[in-house]
């Protein structure tokens, strides 16, 4: 018997093991941004609603670390996280929003209905900031320190249990 004839079977068994292992692993489809720990890209976005100022990179420089919240009025999880954003605002966190592919009137309705935790809201009609910052969807929230460096990325809506986490990350970003 030639042992070389067993090589294909051996390779296949290796594949079976690997695929079997992967199938039993929980699928993690969150894609972390490569921009974490890097400087926030330069941007300057016009106001998403008439009543509030737009957002730019300069708004994050100086003072305390801030949250950058990427959201949209058409996004359902954004409604779910609106309460948590209000809580964070209540704790004295400054949140700058960027509305993705949105209309001013829809933004206004959303803010009226679900509260307005933002100090500024920029309007990103072609998802340009999303692409530059490496966001894979809406909503996402970033901790930006006073130097304008991205310190932490939160993918998906913020739930109650995430609030202490974000507060801690904000605190860490102070140093």
């Amino acid at each position: 018997m030639r042992w070389t004839l067993w090589i294909p079977l051996g390779l296949f068994v290796f594949f079976l093991g690997l695929a079997g292992y992967q199938l039993t692993q929980p699928k993690d489809d969150q894609i972390p941004s490569a921009m974490v720990e890097k400087a926030l890209p330069e941007f300057e976005l016009p106001a998403a609603v008439e009543t509030m100022p737009g957002a730019s990179r300069a708004d994050f420089i100086g003072g305390k670390p801030k949250l950058l919240n990427i959201w949209a009025s058409w996004c359902l999880p954004c409604i779910a996280e609106a309460k948590q954003l209000e809580v964070l605002e209540g704790q004295g966190v400054e949140i700058i929003g960027v509305a993705i592919r949105d209309k001013p009137e829809d933004v206004a309705i959303f803010l009226e209905r679900y509260g307005n935790p933002y100090t500024r809201i920029g309007k990103d009609d072609i998802s340009s900031l999303m692409l530059e910052i490496g966001a894979s969807g809406v909503p996402e929230t970033y901790v930006i320190d006073a130097e304008g460096v991205i310190r932490y990325q939160h993918i998906g809506d913020i739930r109650l249990e995430h609030i202490p986490l974000l507060l801690e990350e904000l605190k860490k970003a102070e140093t």
């Binding site: 018997m1 030639r2 004839l5 067993w6 294909p8 079977l9 296949f12 068994v13 079976l16 695929a19 079997g20 199938l23």
Partner: peptide, 21 residues
């Protein structure tokens, strides 16, 4: 499908290893 693969590909490769000689 992985079980099917194990049976068919694994089985045929085993037959191959046993018989091809």
């Amino acid at each position: 499908i992985l079980v099917l693969l194990a049976i068919y590909i694994g089985g045929s490769l085993a037959i191959f290893a046993l018989r091809a000689g």
